[in-house]
Design a protein around this nucleic acid. Structure first.
Length: 299
DNA sequence: TTCCAGGTGGCAT
DNA sequence: ATGCCACATGGA
């Protein structure tokens, strides 16, 4: 168990229920249990009594070394969201409202491969079913990650594992027409990884390397994959590659941009322009506040 | 029954 | 470059 005191601008519901991740579940005590990096953990956050905007973060089932190696950046703990919210809140009244409803959001830095497959599954699909599909995929084809609090966990399957499968193998996971996209993409990634190991075309970057490359370069590579269009590519850049300026436009964000900002419903160009002009390097974070906000309004 | 869900590929203009 | 439409699946 690793405990961090005085964590600010942090709320588990906002982080794990804003559609950026699919493998976390809320416990009765308000904590969340899930798995990342092949490690099941429980994350608990208690607000300080005297200071409302900060609290104590506890992660069970890891040690200090793993915390520093993976979890600190996964939870984006070194970023000052207070400062970001101050900047974004000045932009317009709608954003100021959206920040209020999702004040504790943080953009997770997830595994790029897992994010890639997860968001291929997400297309034309709803969040509860996306979660079921991903759990099925992990249970059938992921390596065992051991037991935690009485439940068995499985890591997200590697590209090389999915690359060997056929649509028949995947049928029990109920991915629908997305199954063939995932097989084709897994084969591309596995092949690109292999050719990279053999030091063939060194201009080809792996998903990990694209995290450190220019956003545009990552976008172009992702767009060349089967089942990846503009929306999914931007989600992978944002949630799996740390590219916080990416502004994914889905049905919900379209709804916000239309109803609240008055932009024509199918004018994605204007929506994207509005984001880059007003939210700039924080576009993706702004997008998450808007996404969370409109979904709260619908409930 | 029909509609919808964190859209994209394929095909026709 | 842009506009349609089919696409699996399950819940409302």
């Amino acid at each position: 168990m690793v405990v961090t005191e005085k964590v600010r601008d942090f709320n588990l519901d906002h982080i794990f229920d804003c559609g950026q991740c699919f493998r976390w579940n809320k416990e009765e005590d308000g904590s969340y249990t899930g798995i990342a990096f092949g490690r099941p953990v429980n994350i608990c956050f208690e607000i300080d009594k005297e200071e409302e905007n900060q609290g104590r973060l506890s992660i069970d089932n890891i040690d200090e070394k793993e915390f520093n190696q993976y979890w600190k950046s996964y939870l984006d703990l070194d970023r000052d969201y207070g400062q970001i919210k101050a900047v974004l809140g000045e932009k317009d009244l709608i954003m100021a409202e959206a920040i209020k409803s999702g004040q504790g959001i943080r953009i997770l830095k997830q595994d790029p491969w897992e994010t890639l497959v997860s968001f291929i599954i997400s297309q034309n699909n709803n969040i509860p079913r996306i979660k079921k599909c991903i759990e099925g995929l992990c249970e059938m084809f992921g390596e065992s990650a051991g037991n935690f609090r009485g439940k068995r966990y499985f890591a997200f399957p590697k590209p090389e594992a999915l690359a060997q499968l056929t649509e028949v193998d995947l049928a029990p996971v109920k991915l629908g027409y997305r199954a063939k996209y995932i097989i084709e993409t897994a084969r591309r990634i596995a092949a690109d990884n292999a050719s990279h190991l053999k030091e063939e075309h060194t201009d080809l970057l792996t998903l990990e390397q694209l995290c450190h490359a220019e956003t545009q370069k990552g976008y172009e590579y992702l767009m060349s994959l089967c089942g990846v269009g503009p929306k999914v590519a931007n989600c992978i850049l944002l949630f799996g590659m740390g590219k916080h300026e990416s502004f994914p436009i889905d049905v919900w964000v379209r709804r916000v941009m239309h109803r609240l900002y008055g932009i024509e419903e199918n004018d994605m160009k204007s929506m994207s322009d509005y984001a880059s002009e007003n939210f700039g390097q924080y576009g993706g974070i702004a997008q998450q506040y808007l996404f969370y906000h409109i979904r709260q309004l619908e409930k």
